[in-house]
Design a protein around this nucleic acid. Structure first.
Lengths: 247, 247
DNA sequence: CACAGGAATATGTATAGACATATTGATACC
DNA sequence: GGTATCAATATGTCTATACATATTCCTGTG
């Protein structure tokens, strides 16, 4: 698989309005190193004479750059180029069903286990919650053109997501259902490598001892745990791609 | 007027300014699901009467939400809550030396090979460049508290980064040096899993056949290749963490 | 010299008004 | 029915102005 990412925010070819030109001009100077980190950008009133516009227009360009974290504005002191965010990238992990069908391959889904139960100690540890409550535990397998693509092992906190009780996870994969029904605010991914044990190897139709890529994802809404998922992909044929595109 | 009284109460609440209050209010409705994806949020002139402010103020709040990709604004049609985003996260891969020292562990670095040479076919393929030129090829090992942490295999395009010729990679790891001297605009990470071959296992002091996490990173500045690096981490002990924080 | 306090200044927020521009929806025409 | 046209409308950009606020700089005082 190739989880390719495009931050096409800047690809939108819109009309070059004045404030956008100013923004791009400053962005260019920062990214080419002409204005290195820490450099003080000309004051707003200098920029307004340079570009021949009002201060509000300059300010709008600077505000967007500040929101994008390229610059830092300090009252009385001025505006400064921030240290670039080195080595960070936007990693996008799309819904598996959507990803496979987008590639023009046939998506296959098999529910292996789906149990609704009171949370046991292991469940609570995985979800990071203290008090007892109900959970849904799901195991399933995704495939593309009949070939196993990933196996998924998921816990959903039923108290945080009561609507999940009405979903039919025999038909719709839980990730897809959650994506369309439950808004979230925070997610943490933990990516690691393992070798397939016999059970995993059988489920993914690979050799025992073959490498696998593992993604553990924990999802919250406003500090409330929603779901925890453990995904295992065959590791040699599958790659996660994260791409950062600036300017 | 009663309107200005209302606004004063609004501002007295804490510190947030009016446009920020508006932004947070709309954000809350979206994240709680009160305004689901696709929902048309009130027109700007409705919002300005609701909040008792000018259209510019409302527009500023909406502009920031649009920049953060929470809403979509369409001329004549109105403003709409965007469909749920794909799961996306900021993947941060810090400088290895800084990462280890930040954990309070002692950082160790060993340069294994460092060669300056004309690019051969394999080098050009890896860097994705056509014309011949000079490169630096570096192999090194990072360790934490004396335990191997990662092995690194890097190519630097000397034509794109001539300053690299003056760096002493026997002392400073190339990643750290590049981080502090070379601005970049694009990077692509490819993450996969492998099993350690004998050579890798020996370098990382793990068993042959143990899982490893591999990161291949390609870095550009304005479409110009700067460097390509191949990093291998022991896969069971090391985890990459990517975290998304929505506002 | 240390320090309190005030003046200077750059950004931050907000206003009303003006015109531009894209898109929708209705209307008229073939 | 299909299509060209046009007016209505919501967002997009920009101006000039005003005052708020945080910070720095300077100055007077002990």
């Amino acid at each position: 698989m190739s989880l390719s990412v495009d931050r096409d925010k800047f690809q939108a070819a819109d009309k070059p309005t004045l404030y956008k030109q100013i923004r791009l001009d400053i962005e260019r100077r920062i990214l080419t190193g002409e204005w290195p980190p820490g450099h003080r950008i000309p004051f707003e009133h200098e920029l307004m004479t340079r570009y021949g516009c009002s201060r509000m227009t300059v300010s709008k360009a600077l505000s967007e750059l500040a929101q994008a974290d390229l610059i830092e504005r300090r009252r009385r002191a001025g505006t400064f180029v921030r240290r670039p965010k080195f080595l960070s990238a936007v990693l996008t992990i799309p819904d598996i069903r959507a990803e496979i069908t987008a590639l023009g391959r046939s998506y296959g889904y098999q529910l292996i286990r789906c149990a609704r139960r009171a949370a046991n100690d292991a469940d609570r540890a995985r979800l990071g919650v203290r008090k007892t409550g109900k959970v849904i535990a799901i195991s399933c397998r995704h495939s593309a053109d009949g070939v196993p693509f990933a196996i998924e092992d998921r816990l959903i906190d039923l108290d945080a997501v009561p609507e999940a009780a009405t979903a039919d996870f025999a038909i719709e994969p839980p990730g897809t259902w959650l994506l369309h029904h439950v808004p979230w605010t925070e997610a943490e991914h933990s990516i690691s490598a393992i070798v397939a044990d016999d059970q995993t190897a059988a489920a993914l139709d690979i050799a025992s001892g073959a490498p696998c890529l593992v993604i553990d994802r924990h999802t919250w809404r406003s500090a409330r745990t929603l779901t925890a998922v453990h995904l295992v992909y065959p590791g040699e044929s599958h790659k996660l791609v994260a791409r950062f595109k600036g300017g």
